[in-house]
Structure formats: C-alpha cells, structure tokens
Amino acid sequence: MALIDPTLPVVKNLLLLDSEGKRIAVKYYSPEWSTVASQASFEKALWNKTSRTNARAEAEIIMFDNVVVVYKYIGDLMFYATGSQDENELVLYTVLQAFYESVTILLRQQVEKKTVLENLDLVLLAIDEIVDGGVILETEPSVVASRVTMRGADGEQAPMPITEQSFTKALASAKEHLTRSLLK
C-alpha cells in the first residue's frame, strides 16, 4: 500500500494474541511484514519481550526493532497496537484503547479467549471499524461497537451509541425485540 502522507498518524498493525502468544485475530497494515513468516516472528519477538510485564492495570509500552508498541492484557488476552518509532505514543494509545474497550463492550465484559473465539466475527469487525488501511477510522469505543453491530441499520432503532450508561436501555430493547420475535 502506498503510504499516504508522512504527517498522517499510521497504525502498523493491531494484534490480539492469547496468553501463549498464539494469534487470535491480527491485522497488518504495513508492508514491513508482508509474509506470514515475518509476521509470526514479529509476534513471537513481541510476545517474548512483553509477556512477563504487568500490563493489566495500565497499558504498557515498549520500543524495539524501530517500532513502538502499546499493549494491554485483559483476562487471558493481549491487545497490541504498533506504530513507527516517530509516532506520537498517545495516538497509538488512543487506538489501543478503542480496540480493547470496543471489544469489551461487544463481548459484554467477558473478555477471554473462549468468548472471543466464539464471537470472532465481532472482533474482526471491530478491528475493521477502528483502522482502515493504517488510517485511524474511529476511536470512540461505543461508536465502534454500535457500527459493528450495525445499530440503526435496519431502521427499527435509533442510531444511538452504546455506552455503559445506556446499557440497561439497550438490554431492555433487546429483550423486547427477542420476545417479540419468539412470539411470532
């Protein structure tokens, strides 16, 4: 992919690995890792360098091989976002935050390998909604989540963002929806 404008913040990849460093869902945007083998070796090196650090409370950061990676662990999952070494670290952090928070919302707080695998489509779509070809598309987790679930797409519901606050509301409407469809 041709690089667009050097001043534009670019995400090189978004990774979701399990607690043993195996990939669950990944997306590479940069030509640096064009082969599966080079991607695998990058993931291995990254996992070796980060797996022993504690990134549960706050997202951590590491610089190696001329890239900056921000990462966070939730449950038995590791979320990573990579950028060039000149990238503003906080921009990458915003992207990472969008990544793990939108997944958290989509999986209703049950962020663990099992639920992710069962709902892999949602995670893949979330990645797709956050970054498009390296360009940051959306960073607001609730907006990402509502776009993934195509809220408001069928015209029945108002396109309201799903936030933690509106959870009960969303729940209520989902219940209602389900009962209606069951009664049919």
Partner: peptide, 18 residues
Amino acid sequence: AATAQDSQAPLRGPEKKD
C-alpha cells in the same frame, strides 16, 4: 430462561435467527 441467558450473551445486532 432464554432472555436471562441473552443478557449475558455478547452484544449482537438484531438477529433474525432462522
């Protein structure tokens, strides 16, 4: 029972389950 379980289930868009 179905709805109770649903509240725990991952957030999905309105599904038309066949």
